[in-house]
Amino acid sequence: MGEIKVARKKGWKELPEGDYLEPGSAAVFETGDWRSERPVWIPENCIQCLFCWVYCPDSSVKVKDSLMTGFDYKHCKGCGICVTECPGKKGNKAIKMEAEKK
């Protein structure tokens, strides 16, 4: 679950010296399969307020040129906060949760 395929873990002679990590290296670790439900964007209801983006704990709302463009399903854990926070248009939310097909 979630594990990325590492061909072989390095031995102590090959590993970089010490408890040192490259920045942002967690991006390759996929947490998307933690989800039981996924957020689905409904662009026609979106007012581009970016509340979903600012409240997502997992940096999983994709934004380009300051516009919401969808979700990063590799990392989204399906918490549903974006749905709760989405004001949508005229009371119609621009995000809904759908069950993951298992």
Binding site: G24, A27, F29, D58, H75, K77
Partner: peptide, 16 residues
């Protein structure tokens, strides 16, 4: 500055 792929619980406030 904080990438996805961390292991906080779904919906964790610390991540926010």
């Amino acid at each position: 500055l904080l990438s996805g792929g961390h292991r906080l619980c779904a919906g964790c406030g610390a991540g926010i």
